[in-house]
Measured scan of single mutants.
Amino acid sequence: DDVELRDGDWRVELKDADEEILRAVEEAIKNGASEQELRELAERLIR
């Protein structure tokens, strides 16, 4: 699993992620995405 989400800690570690993925995830976090939404976003972007 390349995506690590810690309970109560919104730092997201994406291994080997490019800047576009990181920006998309950071934007989702700023917009108040839930953990499930972040997982789905990350899975779509990593593929």
Rank of each mutant, 00 (worst) to 15 (best):
K15L: 14
E19A: 08
D9E: 02
R47P: 04
A42R: 05
L14V: 04
L14A: 01
L45K: 01
D9P: 03
E40F: 10
A33K: 06
E19N: 08
A17N: 03
E35H: 09
A24I: 15
V12K: 11
E19F: 07
I21H: 02
E27L: 14
D16P: 03
K30F: 10
E4A: 13
W10V: 03
E27H: 07
A17V: 13
A17Y: 11
I29H: 09
E26A: 12
V3T: 13
D18E: 07
E26P: 00
V3K: 12
L14E: 01
D2E: 11
E37V: 04
D2F: 11
L5S: 11
V25Q: 00
E43K: 15
A24E: 09
L45T: 01
E43T: 14
G32F: 02
D18H: 10
R6F: 14
V3Y: 14
E35Q: 04
E19H: 09
D1K: 13
A28K: 01
R44H: 06
G32I: 00
V12C: 03
Q36F: 09
A17C: 03
E26Y: 15
V12H: 08
N31K: 11
A33N: 02
D16I: 10
R44F: 13
L14C: 02
G32E: 01
R11I: 08
K15F: 10
K15E: 11
L38E: 00
E19I: 14
L45Q: 01
D16E: 05
K30D: 03
I21E: 01
R47C: 07
A28S: 02
R11D: 03
S34W: 01
E27R: 12
R23W: 12
V3H: 11
I46F: 14
L22G: 02
V12G: 08
D1S: 14
R6A: 11
R44G: 05
I21D: 01
A42D: 00
E20G: 14
D9H: 06
E13P: 07
D9W: 14
R11F: 13
Q36G: 05
D16R: 09
E13R: 14
V25W: 07
E4N: 10
D2K: 10
A42I: 15
Q36L: 10
I46M: 15
V25K: 00
E43I: 15
D1Q: 12
R6E: 11
D7A: 07
A24L: 12
L41D: 00
G8F: 15
V25C: 01
D2Q: 11
W10A: 03
A42S: 05
R11N: 05
A24G: 01
E35Y: 12
A24T: 07
R39L: 06
L38K: 00
E4W: 06
R44C: 04
Q36I: 11
D18Q: 08
E35C: 03
I29L: 13
G32S: 01
L5T: 11
V25N: 00
E40V: 11
G32D: 01
D2G: 11
A24F: 09
R11C: 06
R44E: 05
D16W: 12
E20T: 13
L41A: 00
A28M: 06
G32V: 00
E20I: 10
E20Q: 12
I21F: 05
E40S: 10
E27P: 00
A28D: 00
G32R: 02
I29G: 06
A17E: 04
D2V: 11
E37P: 00
V3M: 12
E43G: 13
D7N: 11
L5A: 09
D9T: 04
Q36E: 09
E43Y: 14
A28E: 01
D2S: 13
D9N: 09
I46S: 06
I29T: 07
G32P: 00
W10Q: 02
L22M: 11
I29E: 14
L41W: 02
R47F: 13
K15S: 08
I46K: 09
E19Q: 11
E35I: 09
Q36R: 10
E27N: 12
R47K: 12
R6W: 15
R47V: 06
Q36M: 14
V12W: 13
E35V: 09
E13W: 15
L22C: 02
R23E: 03
K15N: 07
E27Y: 14
Q36T: 09
V3R: 11
E37C: 04
L45Y: 05
L45F: 03
A33H: 04
D18T: 13
V25A: 00
Q36K: 10
L38D: 00
D2I: 13
D16S: 08
K15T: 07
L45S: 01
R11S: 06
E20W: 15
S34P: 02
L5M: 12
E43L: 15
V25H: 00
L22F: 08
D18W: 06
L22N: 04
V3C: 03
I46T: 08
L45A: 03
E26I: 09
E43P: 01
A42C: 09
R11G: 06
E40A: 14
R39F: 05
V3A: 07
L45W: 04
E43Q: 15
K30A: 13
E27D: 06
R39H: 04
V3L: 07
A24M: 15
Q36H: 08
D7W: 10
N31C: 02
R6Y: 11
L14T: 02
D9G: 08
L14M: 06
V25I: 14
R23C: 05
R39S: 03
A42Q: 03
E19M: 08
E20P: 05
W10S: 03
W10C: 02
R6N: 14
L45I: 04
L45R: 02
G32A: 01
R23A: 09
R44W: 11
V25S: 00
V12R: 11
A17R: 04
A42L: 14
I21K: 01
E4Y: 04
N31H: 08
E27Q: 10
K30R: 12
S34A: 03
G32L: 02
D2Y: 10
D1W: 13
G8A: 10
A28N: 00
K15W: 09
G32N: 04
S34N: 07
E40G: 04
D2W: 10
E20M: 13
E37I: 03
E27V: 09
D18F: 07
E43C: 15
I29Y: 15
E13L: 15
D9Y: 07
S34G: 06
A28Q: 01
D16Q: 08
Q36D: 11
V3W: 14
D1I: 10
R47D: 06
E43S: 14
D2A: 11
R39T: 02
R23H: 06
L5W: 14
K30S: 07
D1M: 11
V25D: 00
I29M: 14
E40W: 13
R39W: 12
A42K: 05
S34L: 03
D16F: 13
